[in-house]
Design a binder for these strands. Structure first.
Lengths: 133, 133
DNA sequence: CGGAATCCTCAGCGATACTG
DNA sequence: CAGTATCGCTGAGGATTCCG
């Protein structure tokens, strides 16, 4: 979105095509497995591949590699290769990735205050809330 | 998940299994199509099914129904059925859903300030950043 | 160790048609 | 209008094997 010369401030409330300005962020930051990865790197600092693999249970090496590549490409994660024997690779949050911290904090806060509301709503819905229509 | 009596305050920094406290929120709020739907309802207020369908381009009625049901079940969206001819159904953000507003605002803000950084990182990566190792 | 390559499965979505 | 039902398919992800 850098080369947008003179578009009349397309606002989400007027432009149907931009119905959701947060979707791009969601695709980048909250796509499958990316939140655990980013959180892990954010909470535990620089880590090796296996550390991440063990920490994020049930993720397969293939998918972990895919997601790390994606995050590296998006500039959120920095990959450092140490040409040793055995080889060693370390991943860490980039500076850009660190700008997500307040966002993550706010989400975590929302979780602690509202997640049980969701749980309750689900139970209520499952018991008697089936839609009529 | 409901029968967990007396778990010793499992903290994300000590419990590997809870590697990511924000994942549940991501599953609820940022799963496929949910962000455009919530945003649409948030930005344009109460809307009928077809309005949402037209606003969120390329979504099929089937999937829109699925997502709306899910959001209703999670207590983020309220569905109102008007038994008229022709039938009329309206959807709106619930009170719980409205608590997401600051979150969405912050994400939108992150988008405006950092999305082009991501774009640049991608170009840089695609040009010369292929990982060695 | 940190992957890449290969094969395979299956949930989710699209397309279409039909209903109250 | 506001969905439901059915079918077919695609592609993300799992399992396995191999390599520098």
């Amino acid at each position: 979105m850098a080369g947008e010369t003179s578009r009349p401030a397309a606002d989400a409330t007027t432009d149907p095509e931009l119905a959701c300005p947060i979707s791009p962020v969601v695709d980048i930051v909250f796509s499958r497995w990316t939140s655990p990865i980013l959180w892990s790197l954010h909470a535990f600092g620089r880590q090796r591949f296996v550390e991440l693999e063990r920490r994020i249970e049930k993720i397969t090496p293939k998918v972990l590699t895919q997601r790390l590549r994606q995050l590296e490409r998006d500039g959120l994660v920095v990959r450092t290769y140490h040409p040793e024997v055995p080889p060693r690779v370390e991943y860490e949050i980039s500076e850009l990735g660190r700008t997500l911290s307040p966002l993550f904090a706010q989400i975590a806060e929302w979780a602690t205050t509202n997640l049980d509301h969701v749980e309750r709503a689900r139970r209520h819905y499952d018991e008697a809330g089936a839609p009529r229509g």
